[in-house]
């Protein structure tokens, strides 16, 4: 009898609890979402219809896309504040360059996505080569990109064609565009999380030194993660233009800290290495649905930031509590 398989079995039952603890932050986020949906659903009719799902997903989608990139950077142990500038820049480029010709729009969409990845990659390169702190580099990046956006389009304006806006509201099999984007994101993540690259990104976030000693090129990982973050920010900006119908040179700033918050609420660790996109998606839904909750509770909409702040703190405290527990168990 091979002893290894025996040890595997006994280990798996022993593992159950520590695995549960490892997922505690995500489970906490899920239960918070359930509570919010329950309250919302008990006070408002028609919450559990496809229309409502389409509507709320549409409201959450820009944040979800922005937070997807943020999640990847957070997993690597970094942070990307420049996405705010990239989102603004994306909307103003679209609003000023799209025109009516679909071919042209396709071209410029590609250019915007390329700019997003390129600038992110440059950020990652800079962080590696000069060994800089991502917080300050991406803060400067935000300022620069936001400034460029303002130079292209000093105030809200420009326009994208009606059919482009309409493409954000298409329905297929009863599900709207944002829900299909969400499904695509989920499929993407199911694949991505199983790749070597994702393991390497998480490993680098968990312990840069260990990853380096194991032969990981930190520069390459920085270029990829910040590049992906810029790419998803650009994607968010394209989606956003279908919502606002034009360009807005400062709008991205509203997504910087919420994108971090969505990830953290969903159980992604600020210190890197732990978390996944599903948590971030739940976090983005929570932050979005708080707005609806405030509405159906008939309290001042000003309570919305209070609630999101409290939920953020609760999420962080829950995960640090779980971590302490896990650590005690480990030692």
């Amino acid at each position: 009898m091979n002893s290894s398989s025996k040890q595997l079995q006994s280990a798996q039952s022993m593992n159950m609890q520590s695995r549960l603890l490892a997922h505690a932050p995500f489970l906490v986020a899920c239960s918070m979402l359930v509570v919010i949906v329950a309250i919302y659903g008990s006070l408002q009719t028609g919450v559990f219809t496809i229309d409502e799902i389409n509507l709320n997903t549409a409201a959450a989608m820009t944040l979800m896309l922005a937070a997807t990139g943020q999640t990847i950077v957070l997993l690597r142990g970094g942070i990307d504040l420049s996405i705010g500038g990239m989102i603004s820049l994306g909307t103003v480029i679209a609003a000023t360059r799209f025109g009516d010709d679909p071919a042209n729009i396709l071209l410029w969409s590609g250019i915007i996505l390329a700019i997003g990845f390129g600038i992110g990659a440059l950020t990652g390169l800079l962080i590696s080569v000069l060994r800089l702190q991502p917080f300050l580099v991406t803060l400067a990046g935000w300022s620069i990109l936001n400034g460029i956006a303002l130079m292209i389009l000093p105030t809200d304006g420009g326009k994208v064609p009606e059919w482009w806006i309409g493409s954000g509201y298409l329905e297929f099999l009863g599900l709207g565009t944002p829900v299909w984007i969400l499904l695509a994101l989920i499929v993407f993540w199911c694949w991505f999380r199983a790749t070597r690259l994702c393991t390497i990104i998480k490993a680098t976030g968990s312990s840069e030194k260990s990853a380096f000693l194991s032969g990981v090129s930190i520069t390459r990982i920085n270029i990829i993660t910040y590049g992906l973050s810029g790419f998803f920010a650009a994607l968010a900006s394209l989606y956003l233009t279908t919502q606002i119908g034009g360009g807005s040179p400062n709008i991205g700033t509203d997504y910087i800290l919420p994108s971090v918050a969505a990830a953290i609420i969903g159980g992604v660790s600020l210190f890197g290495g732990r978390g996944h996109l599903f948590g971030t998606i739940v976090g983005a839904y929570i932050l979005t649905l708080i707005g609806n909750l405030v509405f159906v509770l008939r309290v001042s909409s000003y309570w919305q930031p209070v609630m999101s702040g409290v939920i953020l703190l609760l999420a962080v405290l829950a995960s640090s509590y779980a971590e302490q527990k896990a650590r005690k168990r480990g030692s």
Binding site: L136, S143, L145, G147, I148, L150
Partner: peptide, 24 residues
């Protein structure tokens, strides 16, 4: 413009943190 100001702000921050970086 005010946009240019933000660009300059960002550039100045980038410049100073680069000068202060370990590499430099």
């Amino acid at each position: 413009s005010s946009g240019a100001l933000l660009v300059v702000y960002g550039a100045v921050i980038l410049l100073t943190v680069s000068i202060g970086s370990e590499t430099f």
